[in-house]
C-alpha cells in the first residue's frame, strides 16, 4: 500500500516536472523572440537623432536592450535594424562635435566650450569603439578643438579623459 502511494506520488511529481519543463521551454522561446522585437521597436523609436537628452535616452535604451540579447542564441543577428542603431550612435556623436565646433566658432565662453568638447569626447568614447572614428565625419574637428583648448595646447589626448586616445587618433 505504502509502495503504491509512493509510486503514485512519483508519477504525479514527474508529470508536474514535465509540464514545468514544457512551460519553461515555451517561455524561453517566447522571451527570446520578445527580447528581439523589444530591441527592434526601441531602435525604431529613436527616429531622427538630435543632440538632446531625449534622443540620447532613446539610443541608450536601445543599446541596453541590444546588449541584453542572449549571445548564446545569437539573437543580436536577428535584430533587423541594428545598422540604424549604429548609425544613430555615430550621428549623435557627430552632432555633439558639431555643437562644440559651433560654440567655438561663435566665440562663446571658454569654460562652456571646454564643457562641450568634454561632452563630445565622452559621447565619442561611449559610442565609438576603437577604430570606428572614421564613421564620424567631423572627428577631426574634435581633435582640433581638443588641441586648441588643452593646457599647453600640444597634446590633445592629455586633457580629454579618453582612455586610449592616442591609439584611436592613429587609427583615424
Amino acid at each position: 500500500m505504502a509502495d503504491k502511494t509512493k509510486t503514485s506520488t512519483a508519477i504525479k511529481f514527474t508529470i508536474i516536472l514535465l509540464i514545468l519543463a514544457v512551460v519553461f521551454l515555451v517561455l524561453s522561446i517566447v522571451s527570446a523572440n520578445l527580447s528581439v522585437s523589444r530591441t527592434v521597436n526601441a531602435i525604431d523609436t529613436i527616429g531622427t537623432v538630435e543632440f538632446s537628452n531625449d534622443s540620447k535616452g532613446k539610443i541608450d535604451l536601445a543599446l541596453k536592450y541590444y546588449g541584453e540579447l542572449d549571445t548564446n542564441l545569437s539573437l543580436q543577428s536577428k535584430v533587423t535594424n541594428a545598422d540604424e542603431l549604429t548609425a544613430a550612435k555615430f550621428e549623435y556623436v557627430r552632432l555633439a562635435i558639431k555643437n562644440a565646433y559651433l560654440a567655438d566658432k561663435n566665440g562663446g565662453d571658454e569654460a562652456t566650450i571646454k564643457e562641450y568638447i568634454e561632452l563630445a569626447r565622452k559621447s565619442f568614447d561611449e559610442y565609438c569603439s576603437t577604430g570606428k572614428c572614421k564613421n564620424v565625419s567631423n572627428y577631426d574637428d574634435l581633435t582640433s578643438l581638443e588641441s586648441k583648448y588643452s593646457d599647453g595646447g600640444a597634446d590633445a589626448s592629455q586633457n580629454t579623459g579618453s582612455p586610449e586616445p592616442a591609439e584611436e587618433i592613429e587609427l583615424c
Partner: peptide, 15 residues
C-alpha cells in the same frame, strides 16, 4: 517581468 527571468535556466533546472 517576462524578460527579466532566465527561463532557459529554469528549463535546465526542470530537466
Amino acid at each position: 517581468f517576462l524578460l527579466s527571468i532566465n527561463w532557459i535556466a529554469l528549463f535546465a533546472l526542470s530537466i
